[in-house]
Amino acid sequence: MRKLVTIICTSVLAACGGSSAGSKPVVPPCDLTCQDQIGVTGAREMLKLIYNLGLQGQPVGNQDAMAPCPLGGSAHVFGTASSNAVQGSTTVQLTYVLDQCVYDNVDPTTPTQNYALTVTGTFTETGTLAVQPSSTTALGITGTDVTISGTVDDPAVMYDAADCALELQQNGNDLSGTICTRSVGVSL
């Protein structure tokens, strides 16, 4: 539906000779490194979504919450968290248990970052979440028996990281580490 509306609006502009649509750029195929980058981005975004849906705004201290994944699946998050409202930071030591949790990103302005992923597995998240820019996010994320599957990129490429170990560090907006023993690095 959104596409139709976009198309109609595009056609209006085109009919006026003022279309901004140019030739579709030629993009290289998304190799495994590229796929891993999008895959870990999706996993990180998913944890962030679950946190914001399930814990944000809750009193500091012990946490135990169930959060539905909006596009399907469920998540259980528990652990401890505290905050510093002056600095705008939250310190967390949380465990996320994801069961067939579905998430996607379909943005026509950045099609190479598109994904539709389903994630299952257990993640631990330790460190500081920041409300930028007054503080900096510094996190360690580990996962065991993590399965990330679905599609990445546009045109869509099948992606399947099954039963993998995940070791990620986030410093500011930079996310790096390994997935299925493969090195990965991406800027969020």
Binding site: K48, N52, S83, S89, N105, V106, N173, L188
Partner: peptide, 17 residues
């Protein structure tokens, strides 16, 4: 006394979600 949001990575969530 409450937990703040996670806005790392730009503050927003994925566009189409």
């Amino acid at each position: 006394g409450t937990l703040g949001p996670d806005r790392s990575g730009g503050g927003g969530q994925a566009a189409s979600s």
